[in-house]
Nucleic acid binder design. Sequence first.
DNA 1: CTGCATCCTCTTCGATACTG
DNA 2: CAGTATCGAAGAGGATGCAG
Lengths: 230, 230
Amino acid sequence: MESTSSYGQFCPVAMASEIICKRWTTLILREFLRGTTRFNDLRRGVPRMSPSLLSKRLKELVEAGVIESVSGSKGPAEYRLTPAGEELRGVVRDLGGWGHRWIESKVSLRNLDPSLLMWDMRRSLRPEPLPPRRCTIQFQYPELPQVQRNWWLVIDEGNVDLCGFDPGFEVDLLVRGSLRSMTSVWMGMSTVAQEVAKRQLHLDGDPAIASAMQHWLGLSSFAAMPRRVA
Amino acid sequence: MESTSSYGQFCPVAMASEIICKRWTTLILREFLRGTTRFNDLRRGVPRMSPSLLSKRLKELVEAGVIESVSGSKGPAEYRLTPAGEELRGVVRDLGGWGHRWIESKVSLRNLDPSLLMWDMRRSLRPEPLPPRRCTIQFQYPELPQVQRNWWLVIDEGNVDLCGFDPGFEVDLLVRGSLRSMTSVWMGMSTVAQEVAKRQLHLDGDPAIASAMQHWLGLSSFAAMPRRVA
DNA sequence: CTGCATCCTCTTCGATACTG
DNA sequence: CAGTATCGAAGAGGATGCAG
């Protein structure tokens, strides 16, 4: 029977929760709502989730009609939100909005992750405030182990690339500081100017690019929302 | 480390999901949003949840700042939503709204439960369309075992009481039919008139009360929302 | 009765490794 | 690239106990 996994209630909140409110599922939905469609791209968004569990969750979401697997010419290679899944956008957005408003920064900032941050920054970076040429911006987190310490964003013709190794281009701006400071700026809990003033963030390089950083650095989509806690 | 229970992501969706998207938690929140404050009243709303797990979840929600326990100096402890918890109303409502729109009725109606249904009906019944005297309405589900078969709603001076035993008053209206039919009416998937016409529901007694049933029977708060699936 | 705590069993999850 | 397989650990459910 379905008795174990089911709440045994006809209430729509209970029925929806059986589908949505399982471990990892909201994060998978967040990735879909960002436009991710493929298994290993989803994995990049939920790196601590085991692939077997991701596979299982995808099957559950297909079964529930939230996503569908679009069989490429050879095998099921892509997943997409169904109209039902697309209608979860508001729920996931509001859930995140609540978290942004009410979860203390000291709690959120326990979960720092440079690759998630840099990947988010890559996706939301706005090239327009930058000079109309190729720009290379290096981010350095001195406190991190070697392999996570240096990152490069290369903006060229409106495209943004993220590298975890030196791409070899001349660096136009070096942003150096703690991952915590950089994350709090990206989350809208601080600003570039504040962190620079507190000497938590150091900008070296092209002054025009440095002074425009708050503008080309796309922030978290929740950053503009007023927070209610420290 | 907190690695086990945490997603390890600073994203607000992840942070909020750590608190909200655990088994049973959305249903507990639903009960709070309905105004329930005490342990055993919460239990009535989540009868299949073990009391020890409910106790654990309540502690987690207090810790997260979603509820607070108001220890009366003498009386039993009460729990109340904090302002943060109150701001989850939209999330829980929209989650239920999504479930109502997109989960097939054949799935929802697998989870019939007469005590949850009758308790919901008791809470949302509208006394105004009824005669201004004491009214007793009996609901009978012939297919259920004896102990769940008969229920009485007694409306008197604007108060509604639910009994699982015969209160002894003369019955003004007997509503007889399957729990499935009655539930689908309450969920807004059908109407009293439709079920009566299909002979799934039988009304015996005061014709005025019978013909007004669709009006005094408060429906699920989701019933008015258009559904997208069968 | 209310409001849990304990004990035990069973399911789910996470980490790692491996395959077509 | 897109998943399976395996196995120990953590979490959930059920029964029972117990203090106020």
